[in-house]
Amino acid sequence: MSFERLMSIAGTGMNAQLIRMNTTASNLANAGVVAGTDAGAFRAKRPVFESLLNNAMSGKESFEGGVRVNEIINDPKPVKQVFEPNNPLADDNGYVFASNVNEIEELIEMMDASRAYQNNVEVISTAKQLMSRTLEVIKV
């Protein structure tokens, strides 16, 4: 029945937004991490979404129109170089490399993800209402 499809589409959205919220939480948790090298510094993670098409799901039509996380990329912004000669991780010149996480950006990302999640929840609850409304047809 198509309501199941409606619910699974919204379910893929909830799943993807949850991954987005998880990466945001991980970014915030790692905001204060420093490293001794530029390559080792923590970079904010960003999930990239991709919509599910009919053929991409090898015949599993039930998720057509849904979304999935295609890849998780590192934020390309440059990392901050901080002069901290007393830090045991500091390199020969006394610099440590802090993460490129911007807390404000992350909070906005979190808000956006939670709103999108709520929209999907609303779709599911509407589908549920319509489903029970449709079942009432047989007991007129």
Binding site: F3, I9, F49, S51, G65, G66, N119, N120, V123
Partner: peptide, 18 residues
Amino acid sequence: KSRRLEIISGNITNASTP
């Protein structure tokens, strides 16, 4: 009409898909 609901819910789900 239920197919239309599916299509629109697909739009809502893909609100942040580039």
